[in-house]
Amino acid sequence: MLNVIDNSGAALAECIQVLKMKRAASIGDRIVIVVQKQRSFGPETASSSKSTVSSANKVRRGDIRHAVVVRTAKQVQRKDGSVVKFGDNACVLISKAGEPIGTRLSGVVGRELRERGWGKVLSLAPMHL
């Protein structure tokens, strides 16, 4: 289970496949996820009926999407000898072509994304560590 930190509409995602490898995903890995929980945006959507979710949401619960991992609770060893670990696991949803679905990110992302060719995700992020 990973948090989704973009504004695509998903809040919680479950990883069902790590692409191109047979091991646990790390920062910058592309995975296939199922959207398990949706995010409700804004106060007006909350005040309206609870069953309908905001139309701003680009994904729905149960959707199968691709995503890229941006934070892991498992520590990552860097080339310069430093070790980084995050408080949670998080991902950003992407299209099949590799473009991010959301337009904004909240929270920090790992710097490993640059080496792995996820410059677009990095440019959306407020901070990378």
Partner: peptide, 15 residues
């Protein structure tokens, strides 16, 4: 010193 220690980023993005 460089190469030592561990960086921890909490989910409220405090370092």
């Amino acid at each position: 010193y460089p190469g030592k220690g561990k960086l921890f980023v909490r989910s409220d993005s405090k370092i």
